[in-house]
């Protein structure tokens, strides 16, 4: 799968800081949540880049930044080598047909007062497709995601969670996008349905050849669908590698801890569990140096002071960790 073809999206120094307003009249020092702090990575055409991390690590914020649903505080996002952060509203509107989103909660992402047909048709209407074309396209899309066409005049509440997510997927495919950000698309579904939806997403990718950025907190899900995986911790990327490499040879202590937490359905196998202590620190005042040092089993003095660099551990395998760097040299 891993063919390093063309770069589709490139992210440079992407930051999103949310300001917390202090209480009204009192002069309090302004607090800033660094939800996404200095991300650099690329997404290649046709691949699936998985992003994992704990709740609140900035995964979803990053997904929304890539589609410019949120305005970045700093940094650039190149889509096919054009910086979309500089686009005007009009240009952005035109460009939006090329990147779409699949949302986490299929119960909230479909307008309850629109029929399935209207929902899937909406992106087509937005880009002024003709009525006849639209009906044909809706039919094709419903077929592609496995919803019987006879259901097209029903409302979202008449469907199950899995079916609703299929409808959401059909909507995101309506305009033949090149890039799809899937924000935890199966997290709200029953485990039995998750596999179905994941397979559907994979099949659709094979059929239409788009690129996924797949956000999740479930490692087995991400491993199943991704070609490469990035691990995030408190707004920063800590490790990025091909999924096989990341699973078999994780170098960052945080990744190691995450992977060791995956339950293995084999009672005879003894696991070495890397236990993390402590809570996820608040992103309002993230720890100095390496943000992971408060919970890291290998933390050293340097970790508390200096932010680790983003280094290439081996080919296509990046990590940000002082200990790893030391081991290499």
């Amino acid at each position: 799968m891993q063919t390093k073809t063309k770069e589709l999206v490139r992210v440079e120094g992407l930051k999103k800081h949310f300001k917390l307003s202090g209480g009204g009249l009192r002069k309090e020092p302004e607090q800033v949540v660094k939800a996404v702090d200095d991300l650099n990575f690329s997404v290649y055409e046709g691949e699936t880049l998985g992003i994992v991390g704990e709740s609140g690590c900035g995964k979803s914020t990053m997904g929304r930044l890539l589609l410019r649903l949120l305005e970045p505080t700093e940094g650039n996002i190149y889509f096919e080598n054009r910086d979309i952060t500089t686009f005007s509203k009009q240009e952005l509107r035109e460009k939006r047909r090329e990147f779409q989103m699949i949302f986490q909660d299929p119960y909230a992402s479909l307008n309850p007062r629109m029929t399935v047909k209207e929902i899937i048709e909406e992106p087509l209407r937005t880009y002024k497709e003709k009525q006849a074309e639209r009906s044909k396209r809706v039919q094709t899309l419903l077929d592609a995601v496995g919803i019987p066409e006879s259901y097209k005049n029903r409302y979202p509440h008449e469907f199950s969670g899995g079916q609703r997510q299929r409808i959401g997927i059909a909507r995101s495919l309506a305009l033949n996008p090149k890039f799809i950000v899937a924000d935890e698309p199966v997290a709200a579904l029953d485990v039995s349905i998750q596999a179905q939806v994941l397979n559907l997403m994979k099949d659709l990718q094979d059929e239409f050849g788009f690129t996924y950025l797949f956000i999740a907190h479930d490692l087995s899900v991400v491993n199943y669908i991704s070609d490469r995986i990035g691990v995030m911790y408190l707004g920063k990327m800590v490790e990025l590698a091909d999924s096989d490499k990341l699973y078999n040879n994780p170098v960052h202590p945080y990744t190691q801890a995450l992977l060791s937490a995956i339950p293995v359905p084999d009672p005879t196998r003894k696991k070495e569990r890397v236990m993390l202590t402590g809570e996820l620190p608040s992103p309002v005042n993230p720890p100095s140096g390496c943000r992971f040092h408060t919970r890291c089993p290998l933390a050293q003095d340097i970790c508390k002071q200096v932010e680790p660099e983003w280094i290439e551990v081996e080919e296509n395998h990046f990590a940000a960790c002082h200990v790893v760097k030391e081991r290499l040299s």
Binding site: L69, R96, Q100, F103, A108, Y127
Partner: peptide
């Protein structure tokens, strides 16, 4: 709500969002 964000992500104009998504709801 997410469906408003979904509409925004598809490039639907604010006035259309108000008319087609928000007003009926």
């Amino acid at each position: 709500s997410l469906y408003i964000e979904a509409a925004r992500s598809m490039g639907v104009r604010p006035i259309t969002i108000l008319w087609r998504h928000i007003l009926p709801n």
